[in-house]
């Protein structure tokens, strides 16, 4: 049952899932973090209060958040092809995963920043700090524990998304489960995939909690 080819199949799937989760998480943050910061800073009463910017950005984020992920994958196919040259495989999956998680991350970042006491921003302003300094020196460091928690949530969501992508040829544990489970029912592989996914989620949550706690001095 546990022959060599099955083991390597599962390992390869796990590796691909971890790769997709973390790399797209990284790109998702690269896109979502600045958007979240701008969403926060342009809010009413904040440093760069600007109603129209905030509104437009907010609508854009909401639009992307309303697209079901499976539709987003398909809708983005032409764009994905232009970016990575193909629409199937692990690297192709990174495109919709990053773009799909970015608006989600933006909202989470905005919420993390909202938790920073307003008095701290005010103090920095009184010290003559500009918006960029306030963001770098006050907002992000003070929100760090909460940002780490939100990163765990994001990565866990991405584990799920990447499995969904597996059904349409993205690779990873999702594809393994789909092929061996749905196409030719193999209970052993199916259950192992399940256990591996659960273990991955638990591990991310565990490490995220540890890291967040480490940086929390409140």
């Amino acid at each position: 049952m546990l022959d060599e080819s099955t083991v390597s199949l599962l390992f390869k799937g796990l590796g691909e899932t971890v790769y997709m989760t973390f790399v797209s998480g990284f790109f998702g943050f690269l896109l979502g973090l600045p958007v979240g910061i701008v969403l926060f800073l342009t809010r009413k009463g904040q440093l760069l209060e600007n109603r129209s910017y905030n509104r437009s950005l907010s609508v854009l984020v909401n639009v992307f958040r309303s697209i079901p992920f499976i539709i987003l994958i398909v809708w983005l196919i032409p764009f994905t092809r232009a970016m990575v040259g193909t629409s199937i495989g692990v690297n192709a999956a990174l495109v919709p995963l990053s773009i799909g998680s970015a608006p989600f991350i933006a909202r989470l970042v905005e919420n993390s920043l909202l938790e920073v006491p307003a008095g701290l921003v005010e103090t920095a302003r009184a010290l003559g700090a500009g918006p960029i300094q306030v963001t770098r020196k006050v907002l992000l460091p003070e929100a760090l524990p909460s940002l780490i928690n939100n990163a765990s949530i994001t990565l866990i969501t991405l584990v799920g998304y990447s499995a969904m992508g597996g059904a349409v040829g993205a690779g990873g544990l999702g594809q393994v489960g789909y092929q061996y489970g749905y196409v030719g029912y193999n209970a052993f592989i199916m259950n192992t995939v399940l256990i591996l996914l659960i273990a991955l989620v638990f591990l991310i949550q565990f490490l995220g909690d540890r890291l967040s706690k480490k940086f929390n001095h409140r």
């Binding site: 008095g119 701290l120 103090t123 006050v138 003070e142 760090l144 940086f215 001095h217």
Partner: peptide, 12 residues
């Protein structure tokens, strides 16, 4: 400037 609630950065 100093404040009633001190406003120290908890991360520092």
């Amino acid at each position: 400037m100093i404040f009633q609630h001190f406003n120290l950065l908890s991360s520092r």
